[in-house]
């Protein structure tokens, strides 16, 4: 920015001032969540709109962790999201590799189908999936959610993995194949280690996607024993007597894995993933 020192100063103050507004707007809801979760019950409602808690306590976290239901929901969510992340990344790595390395008949159509599934309203498959999964024993089961989430993650994960494979020179596995390795062996031993960062990023995306999904989790798994964390939290929030403190503590706990992942990848996001990030 140019101009006299005074004009520059005004310009920069304005710049930082507006950015500060955005930072406050981005952080305030999360700050409030943490604040309420740390405010003990005796001052929670009497001082509910104070910006700072008068006293801080971890009592709500103790309540949540001592509540067996929440532990169960947490465990269910970890299983569902973890298995989904592994399964969808494996399948997407295989198909992403095919798109990256081969030109084959039907490739165009397969990519088209995957793109179309991203644009369709998910709500249209809710009723048929419920009807198909019921007789197969996949409602009220973690397996049912894993299958659904894996399938929904695959198109985006495939495009992501393809872009990672595209960044690795073809000559690497061609050299190994000249030396007598099969393509599959070259893929596992030479290419896969090079895409480890990409695999980790893809797994992170699939994990967070499955971690936050709520529509199918609500509809397919009504029993408490197979509820995921979002469903448990939502049903808890609609009870007649709501305890806000423990609920927000549970919300903060649900946030942890996602925030960790986000800070690991955020720099990387703006650099390379924007092309494929259209789905959100």
């Amino acid at each position: 920015m140019r101009g006299s020192p005074r004009v520059r100063l005004v310009k920069w103050s304005l710049h930082y001032g507006v950015l500060l507004l955005f930072v406050v707007a981005a952080l305030f809801p999360l700050y409030w969540l943490v604040k309420i979760s740390l405010t003990p019950n005796d001052s929670l409602y009497t001082h509910s709109i104070d910006l700072w808690p008068a006293t801080i306590s971890l009592e709500h976290y103790a309540t949540v962790i001592g509540n067996s239901d929440f532990l169960l929901f947490f465990r269910n969510s970890v299983i569902v999201s973890g298995v989904t992340a592994i399964a969808s990344t494996l399948l997407a790595a295989a198909s992403g590799y095919a798109f990256s390395r081969f030109v084959f008949r039907g490739r165009y159509w397969i990519v088209g189908v995957m793109l179309v599934t991203q644009m369709f309203p998910l709500v249209i498959v809710i009723t048929p999936i419920f009807s198909i999964f019921g007789p197969l024993g996949l409602t009220n089961s973690l397996m049912g959610l894993i299958i659904i989430y894996t399938a929904f993650n695959i198109p985006f994960a495939t495009f992501l993995m393809q872009s990672f494979f595209d960044g690795i020179p073809k000559e690497l596995e061609e050299a190994a194949m000249i030396d007598g390795a099969t393509r599959f062996k070259a893929l596992l031993q030479i290419i896969a280690p090079l895409t480890l960062p990409g695999i980790a990023a893809t797994m992170g995306f699939c994990f967070t996607g499955a971690w936050g999904e709520i529509l199918f989790a609500l509809l397919l798994n009504s029993a408490a024993s197979t509820s995921t964390f979002p469903v448990g939290l939502l049903l808890y929030s609609t009870r007649a007597t709501i305890e806000f403190g423990p609920m927000m503590a549970a919300g903060v706990l649900a946030l942890l894995p996602v925030c960790i992942f986000f800070f690991l990848i955020q720099r990387y996001l703006v650099q390379g993933l924007t092309a494929g990030a259209v789905k959100g």
Binding site: F22, A26, L30, W32, L233, F244, M247, V258, C259, R267
Partner: peptide
Amino acid sequence: QATIFLPWAIPTFLVGMNWSW
């Protein structure tokens, strides 16, 4: 930049619950 992009990483259901609170 990292701070401003943070809301995007929050799971939708939690965004909804946070705002209804």
